[in-house]
Each structure stands twice: as structure tokens, then as C-alpha cells.
């Protein structure tokens, strides 16, 4: 009898927990949506704003890798051969920017939409302007900065013994292609870099799905 009296509180708590759990299981089954592959209304609106109503997008392959600073969260493929990537990028905050980078069928950037931003209001959020996003329009894989192997002629020039040798050495230096130029937003360098990283990742991802 004494044991029974002691057990009552525990049993009551157990019953309440069990009823709660059953209720939650039921509601979860009713409302659960597969988040990984779902095209949310937000994404749909962003795609509509860039491509118009004619193109239907489906989730193509997800995810598609990335680097330390940005990764592809979802890849979308349109029925006209266009690709769009949802990229989570580090801004001022880690993974602070979720961007939809839209490419046309040749792999050039068509438009960028900020889906989610955890950046500082008034500073980092300024990247979400047509002036800033617009400067990446037309960015392709060819605009990626090329990393040249260390060039020894630069050091040789310093120790050139005569004018003639110097001219010859200068002429033999490989020509560095002009880097893609873009303007960061003042006070939002890290957010701006985050957008640029996302753009670079998008064109790389496009090459992967297009060739590989």
C-alpha cells in the first residue's frame, strides 16, 4: 500500500507524457513536410521574378558540395536548361546569407535574390540592393580569379645584369588576365564578400552539373 502511494505521482507523470507523445506523433504525421527537397513559396517567387512564369523548376541534385565559406543547399533545374542554386554563405555571421543565384543556360549569372539574411540591419543588409547584386550579372566561369603558379621571372628581374636582359625577362613574363572587378558596400565588406563567394560557387557548381 505504501509503495502504491509512492508510485502514483510517477504513474501520473508517465501517463501525461505518453498522451503528449501520442498527440505529437499524430500532429507531426499530419503536418510534416520534407524540407530538404521542397520548393517553398519564397523560392518560387524568387524564381518567378528572374525567369518569369514560363519556366518550371525541379530540384535537380542536392546538395552539391562547397567550400569553407559557402555551400550549395539546393540545386534547381528549369525545363529550358537554366540552373539556379540556393547557396548558404558566410557573411558577417556564419551562414548568415542564404542566396538564390540564378544562371542562364550558358552559365552566366542572371540574378541574385537574398532569401534569408542574418546580417546587421542597416549595414550588411545593404547588399540586398539591385545596384550591388546587378554588378554580378553576366558573371561566368571565365571571370573566376585565376591563381597563377609562382612566377620566378619576377625574382630574376631584380638581379638582371643588363638592360637587354631585363627587357627580355619582362617580355617573357606571362600576362595576367584582368581580374573581375566589383565594388563592395562600405561598412559591409564581409557581407559583400559572402555574396561574391556565393556567385563564384554558383558558376563552379554550374560547370559541375553541366559537364560532369
Amino acid at each position: 500500500m505504501k509503495f502504491m502511494k509512492k508510485a502514483i505521482p510517477a504513474v501520473t507523470l508517465l501517463i501525461i507524457c505518453a498522451v503528449s507523445a501520442l498527440l505529437l506523433v499524430f500532429v507531426h504525421d499530419l503536418t510534416a513536410v520534407d524540407e530538404e527537397t521542397a520548393i517553398t513559396p519564397e523560392i518560387e517567387a524568387a524564381l518567378y521574378g528572374i525567369y518569369g512564369a514560363s519556366e518550371e523548376f525541379t530540384v535537380y541534385d542536392t546538395p552539391l558540395g562547397g567550400s569553407e565559406t559557402a555551400y550549395v543547399n539546393m540545386s534547381l533545374r528549369g525545363d529550358a536548361g537554366d540552373y539556379a542554386f540556393i547557396i548558404v554563405s558566410n557573411g558577417y555571421n556564419k551562414e548568415g546569407l542564404t542566396l538564390l543565384v540564378a544562371l542562364d543556360s550558358t552559365g552566366a549569372v542572371k540574378g541574385i535574390v537574398t532569401l534569408e539574411s542574418a546580417e546587421t540591419p542597416g549595414l550588411g543588409t545593404k547588399t540586398d540592393s539591385p545596384e550591388f547584386m546587378g554588378q554580378f550579372s553576366g558573371f561566368t566561369i571565365d571571370d573566376l580569379p585565376i591563381e597563377l603558379p609562382p612566377d620566378e621571372t619576377i625574382y630574376k628581374v631584380r638581379f638582371a645584369k643588363s638592360e637587354v636582359e631585363l627587357e627580355a625577362l619582362k617580355a617573357s613574363q606571362p600576362e595576367v588576365p584582368a581580374a573581375f572587378e566589383w565594388d563592395a558596400i562600405t561598412g559591409a565588406t564581409l557581407s559583400s564578400n559572402g555574396v561574391y563567394e556565393a556567385v563564384k560557387l554558383a558558376v563552379t557548381a554550374f560547370r559541375e552539373v553541366h559537364i560532369g
Binding site: 498527440l23 505529437l24 500532429v27 507531426h28 503536418t31 510534416a32 513536410v33 517553398t40 513559396p41 519564397e42
Partner: peptide, 11 residues
Amino acid sequence: LTDFILKAYIP
């Protein structure tokens, strides 16, 4: 419960 419902209907 609220969390589930909001996630499903007002994401």
C-alpha cells in the same frame, strides 16, 4: 504543436 502547425501553414 504550435511549432508543427506554424511550420506547415505559415512557414
